[in-house]
Write a protein that binds this DNA or RNA. Structure first.
Lengths: 210, 210
DNA sequence: AAATTTATTGACCGCTTGGTCAGGTTATGG
DNA sequence: CCATAACCTGACCAAGCGGTCAATAAATTT
């Protein structure tokens, strides 16, 4: 029975099972927080016995660490949108596009990250102090260059970056609130497009790049 | 010994003790999440035996409910800034001022709210569907009036409100990340003033109100 | 097809959790 | 100064937790 209903475990069974567990863990950690999540809940969601989880991930914290690390990777990739741009409209616009897409496609991951940071980043403090800080300084320098070139108004680069993060991630982290205010219905394709358009318009006009 | 070191319990001892417990609970819930928080931790932080907590609040959830409710009240009060304004610069500006001040003075409450919404608002769903929805629609109408009067550009009122919430609350919810990127130091008075200035400047210019 | 490694699992363990309760202590009111 | 009510708390409990382990099953190698 090749290519059965369950994803084929012929090639790399370990990877397949790990992915199943990680997906379940991401969802449970997002919905219950680290403290509220239980290995039993994750196991049920993954359709595996609890003991099997500990075969692939020694502890709950190790599993959590992997989940958080994967989100960070995704965000770093999106950040490249800011790099290869010549003007703020293009760079910031592409970055907002990318981050809004991530908020839509990976809402659980975004929530796990938010939860982790809110609780004082006990697990990812080193990320914040090294990779994220370096990345932030680099991007701030690029923004200062745009300002020096007269391509946008002189706004504080850090606070601009915070605004970009806050606004885009809000659609993932507070998605439930937004959905409720949207009459209980999830945002449609057009709703997401309109949201992205609004964010880009206000911020790009706000920094004087339009 | 009138007016001793401990807050006077002569007048309304019940209220005093409740406030002590609520303050401790707010902090612990913010730092550990609902699932990660324990009654023992809250009791230690409040300097009371655990059993005493259950004398004032029957269950962990009842205590949590009170904490969340108090934050919502604070935000509703801040919302009045938006009401008594004639122009967007004044209204939105005052609202940003108020919400930034709350982020600074009540970071724990903001985190508890964020955590609650992220986890699907199991406790405050009714707030979202009634009070918050009504408030949002009222404010959206006010914004549409400003647009009709030509006092600002035609932006989607809902997405503007989301941006205001996201940006201001980010300074509380992600305060640890911001502090880390600030060299590990908490934001100074001037930092907060600069942050508020940046947010107001970008958003007010972004909606074409300047 | 035997041997060996890898994957799977039910049963179990020590510990912490939210919550209870009986009994003690303090304040209030007559 | 006593009685009644409000307040406080150490000791305790059932339930659920993260994690372990010995036994088994499946795959892979020889």
């Amino acid at each position: 029975m090749p290519d059965a209903a369950r994803p084929s475990k012929r090639e790399e069974p370990r990877r397949e099972t790990e992915r199943t567990i990680l997906a379940a863990a991401e969802k449970v950690f997002a919905e219950a927080g680290f403290g509220g999540a239980t290995m039993q809940l994750i196991a049920d969601m993954a359709g595996l016995p609890k003991a099997n989880l500990h075969y692939y991930f020694p502890t709950k914290e190790a599993l959590y660490r992997r989940v958080v690390g994967e989100i960070f990777e995704i965000w770093l990739q999106a950040a490249e949108a800011l790099d290869q741009a010549q003007c703020p409209v293009e760079g910031i616009g592409a970055y907002i596009d990318a981050k809004m897409e991530i908020s839509r496609r990976h809402p659980f991951g975004s929530k796990v990250w938010a939860s982790e940071v809110m609780h004082g980043a006990p697990v990812i403090q080193d990320y914040l102090e090294t990779t994220l800080r370096d990345w932030t300084e680099g991007r701030a320098a690029a923004i200062r260059r745009w300002i020096a070139n007269g391509q946008m108004q002189p706004v504080d680069p850090h606070h601009l970056l915070y605004m970009l993060w806050a606004t885009t991630q809000h659609y993932a982290d507070f998605g439930h609130q937004i959905e409720t205010l949207n009459g209980g219905r999830p945002l449609s394709d057009e709703d997401w497009a309109a949201a992205t358009r609004s964010v880009k318009e206000i911020i790009l006009r706000g920094v004087g790049a339009l």
